[in-house]
Write a protein that binds this DNA or RNA. Structure first.
Lengths: 349, 349
DNA sequence: CGGCTCTGTCGAACCGGTTCGCCGGAACCT
DNA sequence: AGGTTCCGGCGAACCGGTTCGACAGAGCCG
């Protein structure tokens, strides 16, 4: 059941059927209705590959993210979901591609074989060969996150520097003087992930500005690492009274470590960071944090990409987001532990 | 840079280039090497649409899941990740399609426009029009989950009945007599989601068998609903000492509700259920639960689909998984609260 | 009434691959 | 030497759409 079959049954030529469907040339009402009736009867739908071959557009966008390694974080999930939905609203499909690098097989499939019209890249590094490669090819793409020099490229990003700094100021305002920073895994930091670097920068500078004593840590993306990391924090400086984290997957482990150490949140210890609201609301007490607007970022990335596809040569655009800190229940004034009349903490086994 | 260009530069015909690449007919070593050199020089990759049009295969599989509504659960994320990776291992791409129903635009795009060679469906209902539709078309597909009558179809499923029953037996063995069941949202139960129905069945039957007093609840897929649900449980029967949940997104809220009610887990109250291990390990105390092997299920679904694609007409196959309960720290003997010598619990504010 | 434009439709070429039938020449056979 | 086989490569048709140029006929003009 192809376009020729439709044409035959409607008693017209193939081109007339094509024009009736696309509307790119006028077709008489009578003919159009006749064609439409045949199409409805047979449930005909034009073949996507043939159409893509003929007009050079696949109506598909690629979503490129690093290979899972162990697992994905909740944020990545939210990006995927919102990108798929936003794309569907524009009549685009989404092709998923797990890809770390430029020379990756997946990446080559997407670009070289022209499976997609454009791409959205996640988990950007400060120096990212994929981004360079795409820019060189002038291939329509939008990044979620930005490189060290994002000028001239299209991106949607989070102002990690400002967000981490806001966390520091929030804690400093509450009187905390010794604060730890829990970053993404060391291998990601070394690889140059922008969130890890800019977040660390923002934290360090703001802490220096406020005269805080700090320690910074890398931490694996899982609860067990979070717990181990917290133990190290208290071991290295038992007087630490607060921490800032970018690592949402470790969050549950950080909380568990605090419970085991007998530190009550927020009375004895304050926790804050940059975390998707879904996770911030899952832990008890709920996390005071800068909520990552993953849904909005995914949507905006798609909108930018569609715009770029529709207007080749348009000037690069971007969105830098800096959501405010949502006050929940995980931070409090420093020195809470010295309230003599607080109930005796439950001692861990 | 298409195949004709390669042919011209190598001084051979287009068909020879094609055969050199596919190996479907012998080509002399000399010619093949000459062609390969030109290809490497130009970085040529065959156009996916043209290839799909010519040989009728897109090398893409569709992953169909319900529209996000509010958000996805962690389990869905794990499925997506493992499906993408397993597909990549077989040189297939994955096209994401948010689709609730049969007549859905997305669904029609996938099938009608032949964008994919096969499909994997998630979030199956006991009666599912999408599954019926695909079976009718004899379209290669595998479901993650199974309908009420899965005979003759290809699927990978979890034995929710047995898992929920195992949770009940675990609690009954510990001496619990009054147990609550926290299901997925009511709208999903009404829509006929298989996990919600079979889980409820398994729970109800096993509880009857063990003579337990039970209450069952539906609960929204978010922490706030979990907390509200727990309040209702204790309001309806304050003597409840344990619960079984299928709702991982609500888990954090359930824990919070227990903390607010002053019930210590596991001393005063036991919690178990069917939950991805990632979530079970995030909460404190870690959840004793039947771990959903999402990664394995996604991989097996892909393997089945590939097999079905490679051997049309093969007899339907399936995998029914029933992972054991992982003992962690959220369950304990009933009546633990009466141990007089237990440390004084920390009383919540 | 001849020449003009305008409208609706058709045929053919094209997108970039795959595949089938065929053929020329070398090698092998008797 | 002539016939058969085998190997390697070529040309053409095809997959199912889109698009361009052409054209027939109707309606309008002078």
């Amino acid at each position: 059941m192809n376009i020729g079959e439709i044409a035959k049954r409607a008693g017209v030529s193939r081109s007339t059927v094509s024009y009736a469907l696309s509307g790119k040339r006028p077709v008489s009402d009578e003919t159009r209705e006749k064609i439409q009736r045949v199409i409805d009867d047979l449930g005909y739908r034009p073949n996507a590959s043939a159409r893509a071959l003929a007009n050079g557009r696949t109506s598909t966008i690629g979503l490129v993210f690093p290979p899972a390694g162990n697992h994905y974080t909740g944020m990545q999930l939210d990006f995927i979901g919102s990108v798929v939905e936003a794309a569907a609203a524009h009549d685009y499909d989404v092709l998923l591609s797990p890809s770390g690098v430029d020379s990756d097989r997946s990446f080559q499939r997407l670009l070289g074989e022209r499976r997609v019209d454009g791409a959205i890249l996640m988990e950007i590094r400060l120096r990212d060969d994929r981004v360079d490669h795409l820019a060189e090819l002038d291939f329509p793409s939008v990044t979620i996150g930005r490189t060290a020099r994002p000028e001239g490229t299209w991106w949607v990003g989070l102002d990690h520097t400002a967000l981490a700094a806001a966390c520091v100021h929030h804690l400093a305002d509450l009187g905390h003087r010794r604060v730890a920073f829990v970053n993404r895994p060391e291998q990601l930091l070394r690889a140059g992930y922008e969130s890890a670097h800019r977040g660390l920068d923002g934290f360090t500078k703001a802490a220096a500005e406020r005269g805080l004593t700090v320690q910074t840590y890398c931490c694996g993306d899982d609860p067990a690492s979070g717990q181990a990391c917290l133990e190290r924090i208290l071991h290295d400086d038992p007087a630490t009274t607060a921490l800032v984290t970018l690592n949402e997957a470790a969050l549950g482990g950080l909380y568990r470590g605090l419970a085991h150490a007998g530190r009550h949140v927020p009375r004895d210890f304050s926790v804050t960071g940059v975390v998707a609201s879904r996770w911030a609301e899952t832990v008890t007490p709920q996390l005071t944090a800068a909520d990552v607007p993953a849904e909005e970022m995914g949507r905006r990335a798609v909108d930018l990409l569609i715009e770029r596809l529709d207007h080749p040569g348009a000037a690069p655009r971007h969105h830098l987001l800096a959501p405010p800190i949502s006050l929940r229940a995980s931070t409090g004034p420093a020195g809470g532990a010295s309230f003599a009349d607080a109930p005796t903490p439950f001692s861990p086994s």
